[in-house]
Design a protein around this nucleic acid. Structure first.
Lengths: 204, 204
DNA sequence: TATTGATTTAATCAAATGATTAATATTTTT
DNA sequence: AAAAATATTAATCATTTGATTAAATCAATA
């Protein structure tokens, strides 16, 4: 009944290879033979372990999504930190996540709008809605005139956007990795400050 | 030598259909038969008028890119407007563009990072670099301690992100079109204000 | 009108692609 | 070690897909 030694590593090898390729090429752009090559495993093993390309994709997608949630939700639900501390912590963690997998934001944003039902079971989402976080409550109580949805979108957007628009960032054209990294480090420091400035504006 | 009456409309019809399909499904996700169906034209006419799927894609891509530039560059190069006025005008125009083609931001961000060389001739870009705009000069002179690249990225990012992350916007889950539109209208008003607040912060 | 050139169509090709199969090898269990 | 279960492989299938072709249709013009 139990998987043998080598099969576990093969399954893992395929899944990790699939993650790399899907992240880089998206669902439609990825061929099962790409995954086979990337993993070094036989083509048929993909279907042997993961029924279909679509199923494998959904598994990978879910892992990525879970990784994001597990990194973010605890930060937003910490009852012992201020709004600014939460912002600092979230931006810090999320930027690290993005730096580790630079293709991730584009992948998520791209594929989540596709026709594929990326997240298999919707029940897991209900408890993890951002509406229910401590962060959300703090915002509505300390800044009642502010719409928390804008704050969240701006925070996530400013964090993620450099990774989405790197090719679009005309001012960064030809920017090497070092310059890009320095740019990100500036943002790591500034985004929480910017958000607080936006919050502390007088009107609206 | 000159195209006959019907051929012009056929070519146009294919290009417009291609734009719709590419915007929705991306390059890899679009099949030439999709374009044929969407346009109602015979499959072979796609290659007759546009050599290849890739070439048609590049043409569409370029049109979208040009539309963005022609909407934005004049705003950023207006010598008679303030920084805040430029922000208001850009956000206004860009939001209208996005509302007209909600799939556009995702498409651009998604495909521009792909392996396809989307913009055919790079010479056209040199004059249209944001570095060379009046806006950029105003920023460096009025806010010398600020990095203009951050300002630009934040402005574009905040404008575009709702259209990228609509499915990701947990707080907006199940949001109908009307609610989304109201959300955008709030941002149309607020984004320039937010950016100015960020600029007018004391340190950094 | 007849000729010429441009446009359109149906049929088809060759390569790519997701998936399956049957045979072989390997590991686990008895 | 023998048998059973699991894992791996090469070959193949059936579709899909981008592109082409040759014939047919249409439009312009001499």
């Amino acid at each position: 009944m139990e998987n043998s030694k080598s099969s576990v590593s093969t399954e893992q090898s395929i899944k990790e290879a699939a993650k790399r390729v899907f992240l880089k090429k998206g669902f439609a752009g990825t061929k099962t033979r790409d995954i086979s090559e990337e993993s070094g495993e036989n083509l048929a093993l993909i279907n042997y372990y993961f029924r279909s390309k679509k199923n494998l994709f959904q598994i990978v997608m879910k892992e990525i999504f879970i990784e994001f949630l597990e990194s973010s939700i605890p930060v937003f639900n910490d009852t012992n930190t201020s709004i600014q501390q939460k912002l600092e912590s979230f931006v810090d963690r999320h930027l690290n996540l993005c730096l580790k997998q630079p293709d991730m934001p584009l992948f998520v944003v791209n594929e989540i709008n596709g026709n594929l039902d990326c997240i298999a079971d919707p029940e897991e989402q209900k408890n993890e809605r951002v509406e229910n976080t401590v962060f959300h409550q703090q915002l509505t109580s300390e800044y009642p005139e502010t719409n928390p949805e804008h704050v969240l979108l701006n925070t996530i957007g400013m964090t993620v956007y450099p990774f989405l628009g790197r090719a679009m960032m005309c001012g960064m054209q030809g920017a090497d990795d070092a310059k890009f990294l320095a740019f990100i480090e500036e943002r790591r420091k500034m985004i929480p400050i910017w958000i607080m400035r936006m919050l502390n504006g007088t009107s609206d």
